[in-house]
Simulated scan of single mutants.
Amino acid sequence: MMPPVFRFAPSPNGALHLGHAYSALLNLDRARESGGRFLLRIEDIDATRCRPEFETAIYEDLAWLGIAWENPVRRQSEHLADYRAALDKLSALGLVYPAFESRAEIARLVAVREAGGPWPRDPDGAPLYPGNAKSLSAGERTRLIASGTPYALRLDMAAACGRVGGLTWNELGEGPNEERGTVPAHPEAWGDVILARKETPTSYHLSVVVDDALQGVSEVVRGQDLFHATSVHRLLQELLGRPAPTYRHHKLIRDEAGRKLAKSSRSTGLRDLRAAGATPASIRRLVGLD
C-alpha cells in the first residue's frame, strides 16, 4: 500500500501568517501520524502578484517552524503544459467556451439583471456569470480572438454536470455547517466558472485538480473557506478521469474582530511574530496545536 500524501500549497503573493502556519502544521502532523509524505507546492500562476521574495520567505518561515518537505518543490509556473493538456481535454468534450466581457462589463450586466430581481451568486458571494458568450457563433468567436480581444475560458456548467451523475466527497474535517462524512457536491452553484484566461493559461480550480492528481495527493487538508469549492474540484476530477482524494477542511484562524486573516495583517505575520520573540512552540500554542 502506498503511503498517504499530504501537501501545503501557498501562493507567494504575501507573507505567511498564523492561518498558514496552522494549515501547514496540520498537514505535517497528519503526515507524521499516518506515516505519509509531506509535499510543498508553490501556487504561482498569478504572475502579477507573485514575487520571488515572497517565495523565499515561505521557505524560511516553514523551515523556522520545523517543517521539512520533499524536493523538488512543484512550482505551478513550471508546469503550464499540464494544465493546457487538461483544458484541451475539456475543450474536446465541448465543455469550454471563450467569454469576452471585461470585469466592468460583467458588473454592468449583473446590475441590469438585478433590476428585475436578485441575481444568483456563488457560495463565495460573487454573482454568477451573466453573459451570453455561449450563444456566439464559431465565426464570431474566431473573429474576436483574432482581433486580440481579451477573453476568459469558462466551463459550460450545465453541459458538464449533464455528463456526470451525482457527485460526493468524503469529508474528514467539517464544513461551515459541520458537514462531515459523505458530502454531496453542488458544482452548479458556481455557474460557468473560469478555467483560464488569455493571459493566464489556468485557474486555481483547474490547476489544483491537476496538481493533486499528478502528485498523488490522497488527503487534502485545507481551510473551511475552500469547502464549497470542493464541488467544482470533484466535477473536474470526474470529467478529467482523475482520482478523488479525501478532504479535511479545518477551522480558520481569525483576528480579534473575527475576520479571516489576510497576508497584510502584520500582527499575525510569522516573520513579525518571530522578530517579536515568538518560537515555533509558541506558534503551535497560538493556533491551538499544543
Rank of each mutant, 00 (worst) to 15 (best):
E114S: 06
Y204D: 13
Q224F: 00
A107I: 01
E114M: 04
D255W: 13
V73S: 14
P130S: 07
R254C: 13
R7Y: 06
G36T: 09
T142D: 14
C161T: 13
N13T: 08
F100T: 02
A257M: 13
L136C: 13
L289Y: 08
V209Q: 09
H205M: 07
Y204A: 12
S264Y: 09
L167W: 10
S265D: 14
S23A: 12
I58S: 01
S137A: 05
I194V: 15
T279V: 10
E219G: 02
F8S: 10
G14K: 05
M2S: 14
K263N: 08
H228P: 05
R180G: 01
G116F: 07
Y22M: 07
R254F: 04
W190R: 14
S282Q: 04
H79E: 07
Y97G: 02
A159P: 09
A15E: 05
V209N: 08
E105C: 04
T246L: 06
L214A: 11
A189T: 12
Q215S: 11
Q237T: 03
E140V: 01
P118Y: 05
L128C: 00
L128N: 02
K260N: 09
R75F: 00
T149A: 06
E105H: 07
G216A: 00
N132L: 14
L136S: 13
K251E: 05
H250G: 03
P72E: 11
V193Y: 09
S282W: 02
R242W: 11
P176N: 03
R49T: 03
S231A: 15
R266E: 15
I58E: 01
Q215E: 15
F38I: 00
S77W: 02
L26N: 04
E33L: 08
H233I: 10
Y59P: 08
P4E: 13
A146C: 04
K198W: 06
F8I: 09
M2N: 15
T142V: 10
G191V: 14
R274D: 03
V110M: 09
V287R: 07
E256P: 12
S264I: 12
A9D: 11
R75A: 00
L136A: 15
Y204W: 09
N27G: 09
E238Y: 02
P187Y: 11
L90P: 06
S203Y: 04
V5A: 03
A68C: 05
E188W: 12
